[in-house]
Design a protein around this nucleic acid. Structure first.
Length: 713
DNA sequence: AGCACGCCGACT
DNA sequence: GTCGGCGTGCTC
């Protein structure tokens, strides 16, 4: 045999770009070098051991040979991850300019990315985990299965998707809430799954909030095996569902953003539900867009992908207008129900007391009397956004962040009467760093006893409404409720059974759920979305409002002349004439999108340009700004070197001045950012390819991160 | 990011 | 006398 050297190029979850070479004695492992591709390995890393993925193999290395260590071993009982997956990861790493391992490793189940040691052998081998759980959640049986009849638009959409089979295409399915997008997904999947060994991928924003979608999948697919992938499952079930996906044991894979990166044996079609949803992008850790990577994946695999939304992202809408995506509309609700009427309540004419205007209160009373549910949409959790002193200018500022600490009720409902100051029933919590403090008995600044919460959040609305409507059964859903085990489920079950009369909640209440008893939805305030600094704020506001509208009156509404309680969405605003609200009134997404895209084009904003954001943080603000200034100079130099050829092609690179982030200080760290805008995506990437390595070589206390296609700027 | 090594304050 | 603070430097 040969004694030629052999090397594995391994991706590790470390903040260093590139792959790491390790030597391997292939004879010892009875393996051909090329068969190592995609395998999970463990390797020595400094003093520790880590799990990595083999992204490449070689018989030579650029690294100093005497510093190359032998790799530790293969993760046992595991087939290699597919070549198509390796390719996807490589693309994603190049595109987002991040280490491959930083993307690929964290999405592996913990039980798979554990270094096997002699002392702590895993309790079960991966092979046992894969085979033991033969019964993935399987379709629930013939009694439940009913294939709904499709209306004309749904049938057209389904036929279109079936025609795409076996080639890459992106289709935008634009349908209002209740228009039956899910049924199109399911019947399309059913077609795809008739091919032996085929698998399909369904991406959803947040599984916990869309259990009804998962239920309909289970109900629809009798005898099919479903894998569910999201961060909320136990390690064991995450591992077995992941393995089922990799080995082709699962037919349908339903998951959140991380499922976009999961290895799948034979994926034949992808659906991204609610494609506009920010949770596909929002990141703790590496910022990537699961929706965009799903499209890349489809293109690499030459399979069709379907993006569904009632309020498509401006990017997708624009792509559909430019015919890069197919466009399909489901213009009506599947059962022909009307969309709720939208009433704008002019806050300049109707003064709001405790947040509620007279017309809204009257309507609430009327709907409650008629035994219909009422939903109140509030965009702040907690009791009051800030506690302040009535005698001086003290406010409950967080000492670690440039933000107020939010006044929170400690425990559930129960009206907390009396003074807030010193009460043990309240806490001050910073929503940025999480610090949690008691409420001072007196003003820390002047000693005054009169401390009061300013503004209102979900908890205060709940309390005030229970005083106004003492006979109403009120339930609340926000992140605080959702974080308590079982609390969200209890809320939804009470809401669905009709036990609750008033539902109060933040965004998460507007997602996915179908409330049969609900006829009135109220949005208390939304105007900050109209004039926010973030250019995407109107898009988010419109999507939220449409989503709230979609909760209302989705079920058979029987007109009763004695009780006129038709489905209604009421929005309180000071800007009734704003085009956004006028479009909302007509449920006219296309009108909103046109207006808003025109604005984007005027301002040269995405999707008419591309963004890259350099974010930096350190303890001292000047240090951050100085570092960003230096980084900016470097970027300008790189850009001017690129400029000559670029100019001929009309390429522009605009490097903005660094600015502090909207919340400048979080957890004692000062944060600022630098935006680069270009009409050429490839020029931005060329710039990053030179810039990032330069930034990495200079050592500094400043922590930084580059974000490609940032969602918020 | 971890994790070591390294040189200065309040404790059994 | 040492436990431990986190600054700095390295990882194929």
């Amino acid at each position: 045999m040969s004694d030629k050297p052999h090397f594995l190029q391994v991706a590790l979850d470390v903040p260093l770009l590139g792959l790491f070479d390790y030597s391997i004695q292939i004879e010892d492992h009875l393996i051909e070098l090329q068969d190592c591709m995609g395998r999970l390995v463990w390797v020595p890393w400094g003093a520790a051991q880590r799990v990595g993925v083999v992204m490449g193999t070689s018989i030579s290395s650029e690294f100093e040979l005497d510093r190359i260590k032998p790799f530790g071993g293969f993760i046992p009982d595991l087939i290699p991850l597919p070549a198509s997956w390796v390719k996807l990861m490589q693309f994603a790493a190049d595109y987002y300019h991040v280490p491959v391992g930083a993307l690929a490793i964290p999405v592996l189940p913990k039980l798979v990315r554990t270094v096997p040691t002699k002392t702590a052998r895993p309790r079960k081998s991966l092979e046992q985990r894969r085979t033991a759980k033969k019964t993935l959640p399987v379709g629930l049986g013939a009694a439940i299965k009913k294939t709904a009849l499709l209306n004309t638009a749904q049938t057209a959409a389904l036929n279109h998707m079936i025609q795409q089979q076996g080639r890459f295409s992106t289709t935008l399915l634009h349908g209002v809430t209740g228009s039956g997008k899910t049924e199109v997904y399911l019947q399309w999947f059913e077609q795809l799954l008739t091919e032996p060994g085929a698998q399909v991928l369904l991406l959803v924003p947040e599984i916990g909030l869309t259990p009804q979608l998962v239920d309909s999948v289970a109900a629809h697919f009798v005898g099919k095996r479903i894998a569910v992938l999201h961060s909320g499952t136990t390690d064991a079930s995450r591992a077995s569902d992941w393995l089922a996906t990799l080995y082709g044991d699962a037919d349908i894979i339903v998951g959140t953003r991380l499922a976009a990166l999961t290895p799948i044996k034979n994926c034949r079609g992808i659906v991204v539900d609610e494609e506009h949803d920010a949770s596909y992008r929002q990141a703790d850790g590496i910022p990537y867009s699961a929706r965009d990577l799903a499209i890349v994946r489809a293109s690499q695999l030459q399979i069709p992908i379907l993006l569904g939304s009632a309020t498509p992202s401006m990017e997708s809408w624009h792509a559909a207008q430019k015919k890069r995506y197919h466009y399909l509309a489901l213009p009506q609700r599947a059962q022909g129900q009307a969309l709720p009427a939208v009433q704008l309540v002019d806050l300049r004419k109707h003064k709001a007391t405790l947040g509620f205007s007279e017309p809204v209160l009257n309507a609430m009373a009327r709907y409650l009397t008629a035994k219909r549910q009422v939903l109140i949409f509030v965009n702040r959790r907690g009791f009051a956004p800030v506690l302040s002193c009535n005698a001086c200018d003290w406010m409950s500022d967080c000492d670690a962040c440039s933000a107020h600490r939010v006044l929170h009720h400690l425990s559930g409902p129960g009206v907390a009467a009396g003074a807030v100051g010193g009460s043990r029933r309240y806490r001050l919590i910073c929503h940025h760093c999480g610090t949690n403090r008691p409420v001072p008995a007196r003003c820390p600044n002047c000693g005054n006893l009169d401390l009061a919460g300013q503004g209102r959040g979900t908890q205060r609305i709940e309390e005030e409404l229970s005083a106004r409507f003492p006979n109403a059964n009120i339930g609340r859903l926000d992140r605080d409720v959702n974080s308590k085990a079982g609390a969200a489920a209890a809320f939804f079950s009470a809401a669905h059974s009709g036990e609750l009369d008033i539902l109060i909640g933040t965004q998460m209440l507007a997602k996915g759920h179908d409330f049969h008893h609900l006829s009135l939805a109220v949005v208390l305030e939304s105007d900050q979305g109209l004039f926010a600094a973030d250019f995407r704020a109107p898009e988010r506001l419109f999507a939220n409002l449409m989503q709230v509208a979609g909760r209302v009156g989705r079920h058979d509404y029987v007109a009763d002349p004695a009780n006129p309680v038709e489905p209604v969405l009421m929005v309180q605003t000071r800007y009734v004439d704003h085009p956004l609200f006028q479009a909302l009134k007509k449920h006219d997404y296309a009108q909103f999108a046109k207006d808003h895209l025109d604005e984007r084009q005027q301002a040269n904003m995405p999707p008419f340009s591309f963004h890259v954001l350099l974010k930096a943080q350190a303890k001292v603000a000047q240090e951050v700004m100085a570092w960003l200034d230096a980084a900016r100079t470097q970027a300008q130099n790189i850009a001017s070197n690129m400029a000559q050829q670029a100019k001929q092609e009309g390429i522009e690179l605009k490097i903005y001045l660094p600015v502090p982030m909207p919340v400048a200080r979080v957890a004692h760290l000062e944060r600022a950012q630098l935006l680069i805008e270009s009409n050429s995506r490839s020029s931005l990437h060329e710039l990053l390819g030179i810039w990032i390595p330069q930034l990495q070589t200079q050592k500094s206390r400043v922590r930084w991160q580059v974000e490609v296609d940032p969602l918020e700027i």
